[in-house]
Design a binder for these strands. Structure first.
Lengths: 250, 250
DNA sequence: CCGCGGCTCCCGTTCAATGGGAGCGCGATG
DNA sequence: CATCGCGCTCCCATTGAACGGGAGCCGCGG
């Protein structure tokens, strides 16, 4: 390879380039990509050009760069995500039809909750959760469920790290979060009033794998003071259905 | 870089590695990845290791390799696909609730139909379309719609290439496909009886962009001899709704 | 008209990447 | 029990893909 004064590998640079694209920055110039990826201008232009040629990035008629469809295709077609989403979608649709609120599917990824799907209801309030977006585990109902039913090592690691406040109601005291996790395990669900947004309550249940761990979390976002009974009933029923779908062979 | 006796770039090799993962081969050993990507064993192990470290691939407890969640996340979170899917999903759910058949969303990609979403109904028959899967344009109702309302250059390129037969009913004569495209433009929809599977009829309508091109295609898969009137009505209504959703600012 | 930023292209430099091979572990087979 | 085949890790001499500074062009805004 090349002499790389910075010592970076090509793989590292490609990942940094891809990481510059975010939900709020889905289109940018190659120069901007380079600056954000920490690359010299000519290197950035060259790497972006290579990725465009490979289909991982796309260059529009005005020369602006975005994530390419080929990347989405390669990332999706053989991904575990697709299987989980497809298993969950019918059940999520039913939850949403009955509860009439945003319905979400999340999994544990690198000590955070990663959202695989979100069915939005136009009548429901605004909601910051995004598909392919992340939320801290301690700060969301999905996250609490994923953490409560994770391996103890994950729990210790998360509780030993910083617990970021997302809203005034987010618990950040490790002991309080630990108690909350014990409650989630006892009840089999999590209720998180105002943890993310003051006006909303997240309600989540686990989708268990064969070992009893949370393979995923199903949740809805209710208005802050709504009674969660119906939502819990529908979510539990949905979770059983998703567990069944995930167990059946393809 | 490196002395690369084959002259391959690192980017090319990474793409070839990612391309070895398919819907029917979502898990494989690093050695298998290397063979399929045309790489020497030690090179394959090294590149796979780098991609695992970057999160683009994942290595399970038994050392088998699959596509990583990070890749899905990076590919999805800022992708145009997400916006189109989210705009279409409510309308697709309504079509499915009323028509009770598989409902699909496709876009044009590299002279093929790429499927972004498929809502499956358990009551519906089997269907080979897959999310993040492709079908030839001339051989599917979605593809016919995407092609009929594409730029003339795309039409000429596709009609000038091989038209692969997918089932006994797939049209492969360029003149016949050209006539079919004229019919699709005149009627504003495509009906494809048995083009993919003999027992099914695909019915598709375009989701138009501001220039009148097909930004996407919405379709359902009916039993071969079903009357398409209801499906067409629902699909057209859904398409208008998706067009409206795509026009509105985020 | 000038300054600025994006972009393409060139090319001397160099170390990241290459890949053959040694060696280990494991499972299957005779 | 010995042997074989395969996957995998690690080493390291080799080398050319990759690096990135800089020249130059173009378009745009002031």
């Amino acid at each position: 390879m090349a002499n790389s004064p910075s010592g970076d590998s090509v793989t590292d640079r490609i990942v940094r380039v891809l990481e510059t694209f975010t939900p709020s920055r889905s289109v940018q110039t190659a120069a901007e990509v380079g600056r954000r990826a920490g690359l010299p201008a000519s290197t950035a232009h060259r790497i972006v050009g290579d990725l465009v040629e490979a289909g991982l990035l796309d260059r529009d008629g005005e020369g602006r760069i975005s994530v390419g469809l080929r990347l989405w295709e390669l990332a999706t077609r053989s991904s575990h995500v697709l299987r989980v989403r497809q298993a969950a979608l019918p059940a999520m649709e039913r939850v949403q039809a009955r509860v009439r609120e945003h319905t979400q599917l999340a999994i544990l990824e690198q000590d955070e909750a990663l959202f695989l799907e979100r069915l939005s209801d136009p009548r429901a309030g605004a909601n910051i959760t995004r598909i392919a977006g992340r939320l801290p585990l301690h700060a969301s109902s999905s996250g609490l469920v994923l953490l409560a039913f994770a391996e103890p090592a994950v729990q210790e690691r998360v509780l030993g790290g910083p617990l970021r406040r997302v809203s005034a109601s987010t618990p950040t005291d490790p002991a309080a979060v630990r108690r909350k996790l014990a409650e989630v395990r006892r009840l089999g669900h999590a209720i998180a009033p105002g943890y993310i947004e003051e006006v909303s309550t997240g309600v989540a249940v686990p989708v268990r794998d064969d070992a009893g761990r949370a393979a995923a979390a199903l949740s809805v976002v209710l208005p802050r003071d709504a009674v969660p009974a119906l939502a819990l009933e529908e979510l539990h029923r949905a979770a059983l259905e998703v567990e069944r779908a995930l167990r059946s062979p393809l």
